[in-house]
Nucleic acid binder design. Structure first.
Lengths: 166, 166
DNA sequence: TTATATGCAAATTGTTTGCAAGTAT
DNA sequence: ATACTTGCAAACAATTTGCATATAA
């Protein structure tokens, strides 16, 4: 049986089916059309690593069809965001990154301020407290963003070594 | 006795003293100079509402000295961020906002996606779990950002009313 | 005196938009 | 046929940078 550990981001076939239908629903409702570029961008996004930037995604798309433009990627990602298939994330660098809105894996991020590496974690206890807080304030909670910034183990070691050299 | 409730952001005299010394330390270490503009910008920032944008801050600064330029405000806020006096925050709109790095009030944000209003909350239980998570991954935790997006009570009411009219 | 700071304007970066030509329905 | 889409380039908005001038040390 195929193992799927919690750091594996490849979406299941079932969730892709779900996302595809979310998208085509939304498109039908709005009278939007299914074009080769859109299909290519969406499928490329589904295959992408987590937290793709527009640039990275465009590069992958152009590997398949070199004449796709920036604007189309922006427009398509905005579309995916609107219909709940993708989430926009803005970390420290000035780039917008996108991830699959996989409801199952409500993970959050631990970001190293030295090497910029991103570790994901899940904490059901925090999720529960969040709901509580939202309730207390009368909010209907839609989504959240929880980022912790720090120095990862290997950068701590590196920094210690560097200061020891002095 | 003066009450200071948890939604009052005016910093105490003591914490301002602390921030001023953080800043002058940093400046001494880097050989930076204390100019009228820097002093004015820093003091204006200390008096500002929480989550000021560069624009708002500049407007207040120019009330005092109309010929201060954008670039100086950007440069000074970057300086404050580097020496740990201010935090940069990026919410949904494309603006960077700044807040005093007040360690005591480790508040987080609940943001209404309809009216953009921001409610702050504190949750010691979440803080504790965060430390735990960071430890598990060998991270030395420096700061965090925890934002919850939803619909506030009054916007929910408004939306219900609107859909009732149909 | 001399290295840092300032204000301005120009440059950069990420993202959005207008439009003529192309294409799905 | 008739909208919707695309790619391009131009437009934008936020932020950064280069440079001549001003100023703190």
């Amino acid at each position: 049986m195929k193992a799927k550990n919690k750091h594996d981001h490849r979406p299941t076939a079932a969730s892709l089916t779900h996302f595809r239908s979310l998208l085509s629903n939304h498109m039908a409702k709005k009278g939007l059309r299914s074009t080769d570029q859109r299909k290519l961008i969406v499928e490329t996004f589904f295959k992408s690593a987590n937290h793709v930037s527009i640039e990275e995604l465009l590069a992958d798309v152009r590997a398949e069809d070199p004449k796709v433009g920036y604007a189309t990627v922006y427009r398509t990602l905005k579309l995916l965001t609107e219909c709940g298939v993708a989430f926009e994330r803005r970390f420290g660098d000035g780039l917008t990154r996108y991830e699959l809105a996989d409801e199952e894996s409500h993970h959050d991020h631990l970001i190293c301020v030295e090497c910029q590496s991103i570790i994901e974690f899940e904490e059901p206890r925090i999720e529960r407290i969040q709901e509580e807080v939202a309730d207390q304030h009368g909010f209907r909670l839609l989504s959240h963003k929880h980022e912790m910034y720090g120095v990862c183990a290997s950068c701590q070691a590196k920094l210690n070594r560097a200061s020891g050299t002095r």
